[in-house]
């Protein structure tokens, strides 16, 4: 029962306390203006280069923008404890680590889901892109899965934030990696083979492909395999993040580097 309470209540409290971007002064520019600007930027680049239609870029960039809350919020909910000098208090508590850190991921997934949908709808309205009505229900699921898998990567990034001083820089670097390798703006069969190989091991890649299939009018049955792979990758990154948290926590205690700001 305590673990359930830590998971839900503790997770939400930590998210609200540590993720300082929920204020309208930050949330509106970062979660509304930036994703729409990125969608428009690449849609116009696509038009100028004559490569793909607007829908390709709306879907790719809207889904990729979920990684902003997923990476940054997860990093900040861990790194923020150190900034607030509460990390040692959290880590000496007898609370189980699994609900303690996974609980923080739940609101982040919801945040990523909402940001993606806002980007999708805004991009569609501004660029007059249409997605078949029948595709919307599975699309909501795809967005949820992509946010969850990206949060797994965020957990791993957040774990590194236990050791790396500037988590914002780290999250930005990972964000850029997803932009380049996940097939956001160029289909994987149009990039060098090694880049496509890297992309297949990253979150978002399969979800973006699934979303594009749905938007092209293919049925929900065509995306099952992609969703399973996306979920599998998300789970793998989550496990990796938890293992890294455990290892870095132990080594931080041993080397007294826990509160090094």
């Amino acid at each position: 029962m305590t673990s359930v309470r830590i998971f839900f209540k503790g997770g939400l409290t930590s998210y609200r306390a540590m993720f300082g971007w929920l204020h309208p002064g930050v949330a509106i520019p970062v979660f509304l203006i930036e994703p729409v600007a990125q969608i428009l930027l690449f849609a116009f680049i696509g038009r100028s280069a004559g490569v793909a239609d607007d829908r390709f870029y709306v879907i790719g960039n809207a889904l990729q923008f979920a990684s902003i809350p997923c990476l940054f919020a997860m990093a900040f909910t861990i790194d923020g404890e150190r900034e607030a000098h509460t990390l040692s208090v959290v880590l000496v508590s007898p609370a189980r680590r699994l609900p303690l850190f996974l609980g923080r991921a739940l609101p982040v997934i919801a945040n990523g889901w909402v940001v993606t949908l806002v980007g999708l709808v805004a991009g569609m309205l501004l660029l007059r892109v249409t997605i078949p009505g029948s595709a919307w229900l599975p699309m909501l699921l795809v967005v949820l899965v992509s946010s969850a898998s990206c949060t797994g990567l965020g957990l791993a990034t957040g774990a590194v934030a236990l050791r790396v001083r500037d988590s914002a820089v780290l999250a930005n670097v990972v964000y850029c990696g997803l932009l380049i390798f996940s097939g956001v703006n160029v289909a994987l069969d149009q990039v060098p083979g090694w880049m496509a190989d890297v992309g297949r091991w990253l979150p978002l890649t399969h979800a973006i492909e699934a979303a594009r299939r749905l938007a092209d009018g293919q049925g929900a049955g065509s995306i099952g395999g992609l969703l399973v792979r996306e979920l599998g990758l998300g789970a793998a990154y989550t496990v990796l993040g938890l293992l890294m948290l455990r290892w870095l926590e132990t080594s931080s205690r041993r080397w007294a580097t826990l509160d090094r700001v």
Binding site: F42, A49, V173, G177, I180, N185, V186, V191
Partner: peptide, 20 residues
């Protein structure tokens, strides 16, 4: 980061232009 971030967006842009 102020150098790295636009460099990565430049990379994404050039990858799009390179397709044709």
């Amino acid at each position: 980061l102020a150098v790295f971030y636009p460099l990565m967006f430049a990379t994404a842009t050039l990858l799009v232009y390179r397709v044709r």
